[in-house]
Design a binder for these strands. Structure first.
Length: 586
RNA sequence: CGGGACAUAGCGCAGCCUGGUUAGCGCGCCUGCCUUGGGAGCAGGAGGUCGCAGGUUCAAAUCCUGCUGUCCCGACCA
């Protein structure tokens, strides 16, 4: 491509609406422009990069036997009503009506549509397993789009679905996808980690997320450097230091006056009791019934874990009026002792504790000497969010908690959708079985954004060669010098002959402008042609990642750079292949 | 949905508090000269419904009300 005719609207300054590095860079480098909140146009640079990412995904999906489909983005409501997700998805779903007033929606994901096809067409276990995938736009009316392409309302997802007769088959399908995903992200040049994850609204019972550590991420992952334990904090557990409580001085709790003291910290100071010696009482409305949730004072409730414990998604923190009506006191003076008629669930960290402090259900009063199991009964679950620096649950190591971007997520769905949509096959014995499904997603734009987050400097992006929109840029420092221009044109033509994605900066601009643009858009290699060196038969090669510059003979420049690019690609491919051996499953 | 902020030229901003004739600045853009190894220099020029709609006023970018849009902080997900 000739830059002279290429649409490259680079910005010298960062637009104010952008805060995270990838957003700023993608805007500045002329990759994207915003159309509305969370809706972006992809300009030629972005499109080139995204197509390369999609091609890598295609190759790896095809390699495990995946078959590419292309399903509608526009769905009839009935399909989603059949699985109950018409209601479950709530305001996150874009809804519309057709001219006859029929309810329609834009697809948020495609379990329903694929399962429907399976329902119509799959009859026998002999047809299984199947891996079906597509690369398609998804629509989600996010409450808060943000961070450029990281959280948007329309995005491109590679979604695949596996169909198996039984559990063992699903396990194999899941592993195939697990391995394919490792290869995909590796070939895209990302450093990533795989973590145990919460299944959420998707249903199913096992899932992993593929995470790229980055400040701009919206997820938190807990990892142990010692044993490799890794989990989303929605799932992560940790080893807590044991606490030896003294026996309470009296058999019954004692009420104390705590005027104006509401928070855990205030009580700590006022009563000289650390947060770990207190019971924090939260009231949630669960399917419109108040439920008491008890946490150790210094611990945080994790709503994803609460969802698992309650086995419902219909809950929310109670409003102040609801709290007063249920408990007879305001938040800040609540406790489980003497409460009747409400469900009480408690975090496991309270099990075996004694002589604790909590609210008395009377404003400005607390009680001390409370022992779980003696002064109140509760159902125990793991409900707390792990904290940085706590002990690893699987070894003697220490957990680190870091922010991360979710680039992929794989689920074992089971039969939720196949049962709802009646996708069944006959087994060998002639019995009907609902098909076991798996669901596997990759956020295509998030790969690009993650790369930009991971690899940039003050000059711009430094994209991996496998996903960079161009592999090399040829820069004659002046196009008014015929010799330079001719040499550059010649080099450009020879790169093209070799199938290298080459950009020729034939703009009549000063060298500095060209260098800055090349740096900004993140082209991995730059060949600079200047008068002096050219007379000596030399050109300059600059490696974007390292900034390293070397003079090389004009005569071998093309072969040399093409070789470097191929070597870089091979390096990523080799790493992907090595992963496969490591897992040894696919 | 709760909380906070912003909206003036393509981008970044000033002006608004304390209303007043032609709304400025930097970058970018166009023309010419000059320059050509890290966003140069000189001269000239184009470009604005001051987010929208009402209101107050002799007079509104400026004050008031409503709306819309965008961003940021909390609950959802690729």
């Amino acid at each position: 491509m000739r830059l002279n005719r290429f649409f490259l609207p680079t910005l010298r300054e960062a637009p104010t609406e952008a805060e995270v590095p990838s957003h700023i860079l993608l805007l500045r480098a002329g990759y994207i422009r915003q159309l509305a909140a969370g809706i972006y146009s992809y300009l030629p640079l972005a499109q080139r990069s995204l197509l390369k990412i999609q091609e890598i995904i295609r190759q790896e999906m095809n390699a495990i036997g995946g078959q590419e489909f292309y399903l509608p983005a526009l769905h009839p409501a009935e399909l989603w009503k059949d699985t109950g997700r018409w209601e479950v998805m709530g305001d996150n779903m874009f809804r519309l009506k057709d001219r006859w007033g029929r309810d329609m929606c834009l697809g948020m994901t495609h379990e329903e549509v694929f399962a429907k096809i399976a329902h119509y067409e799959m009859r026998s276990y002999k047809e299984l397993p199947q891996y079906w995938y597509q690369i398609q736009a998804k629509f989600r009316d996010e409450p808060r789009p943000r961070s450029g392409l990281l959280r948007v309302r329309q995005f491109t997802m590679k979604d695949s679905y596996s169909f198996d007769l039984d559990r063992a088959g699903l396990d194999l399908s899941y592993n195939d996808h697990y391995n394919a995903y490792c290869r995909i992200f590796t070939r895209c040049g990302l450093e990533f980690l795989v973590v145990a994850a919460h299944s959420g609204a998707m249903g199913g019972n096992q899932s992993h997320e593929f995470m790229v550590k980055a400040e701009a991420g919206e997820d938190w992952v807990a990892t142990c450097a010692a044993c490799g334990y890794a989990a989303n904090t929605e799932r992560a557990t940790s080893r807590l230091a044991a606490i030896e409580d003294e026996d309470a001085p009296q058999p019954q709790p004692v009420k104390v006056s705590t005027p104006g003291q509401k928070t855990i910290d205030e009580i700590s100071r006022f009563l000289k009791v650390p947060g770990s010696g207190q019971i924090k009482t939260l009231i949630y409305m669960v399917e419109s019934e108040p439920v008491l949730i008890l946490m150790r004072g210094d611990h945080q409730l994790n709503e994803a874990k609460l969802e698992s414990a309650l086995a419902t998604t219909v809950f929310r923190p109670a409003l102040p009026e609801e709290i007063r009506q249920a408990m007879g006191a305001d938040a800040g003076s609540l406790g489980p002792v003497g409460v009747k008629g409400f469900r009480i669930i408690a975090d496991r960290a309270l099990q075996g504790r004694k002589n604790m402090t909590t609210g008395a259900n009377e404003d400005d009063c607390h009680i001390q000497g409370v022992t779980p199991g003696v002064h109140f009964q509760a159902e125990y679950f793991d409900l707390r969010t792990v904290q940085h620096g706590e002990g690893c649950p699987e070894c003697d190591g220490i957990l680190a908690v870091a922010k991360a971007i979710e680039v992929g997520h794989i689920f074992k769905l089971g039969t939720k959708y196949s049962e709802a949509l009646n996708a069944r096959v006959l087994d060998q014995a002639g019995n009907l079985h609902p098909i076991l499904m798996g669901s596997y997603g990759i956020g295509v734009e998030r790969i690009l954004s993650s790369a930009a987050e991971l690899y940039h400097d003050e000059h711009g992006m430094i994209l991996p060669v496998s996903i960079a929109p161009f592999e090399v840029i040829v820069v004659p420092v002046s196009v008014r010098d015929d010799d330079l221009l001719r040499a550059a044109e010649d080099m450009y033509a020879r790169f093209q002959e070799l199938g290298v994605d080459v950009l020729l900066d034939d703009r009549d601009e000063r060298a500095g402008v060209k260098f800055n643009d090349a740096d900004l858009i993140g082209v991995p290699y730059r060949v600079t042609l200047g008068q002096k060196k050219l007379k000596a038969g030399l050109v300059e090669l600059t490696v974007r990642r390292t900034g390293e510059r070397t003079d090389i003979p004009l005569a071998d420049a093309v072969a040399r750079v093409a070789g470097l690019i191929a070597e870089q690609r091979r390096c990523l491919d080799d790493r992907a292949a090595a992963l496969e051996r490591l897992e040894g499953r696919a």
